[in-house]
Amino acid sequence: MSVWRERVTWVWLGLVVLTCVTTWGLTKEMFRPAVAVVGIFLIAAVKVRYVMLDFMELRNAPIPVRAVFEAWPFVVAAVILGFWFATPAIA
């Protein structure tokens, strides 16, 4: 078993890259708040999805279970973003 040929390793590398993008990229001043926040949370949802599918092995889980869990990050992101847009801008 070569670590570098494992699927989980490639998923991990992708997650690391996405983390750097959100933490040190999208937070820069050049991005408007709306763009940054939407980008950050969509990326977070995608990250959660990959943790679920490849680390938690939900890819091989019974379909109904997988569907419910896969929906979670996107529902959560949608609710958070919904509230964010409903929140008045600060001065």
Binding site: T22, T23, T27, P33, I80
Partner: peptide
């Protein structure tokens, strides 16, 4: 995965 959501929620979410 909980931290993946918690971190942007508390630390990164800038106001409009």
């Amino acid at each position: 995965l909980l931290w993946i959501v918690l971190f942007p929620l508390l630390y990164l979410m800038k106001a409009a």
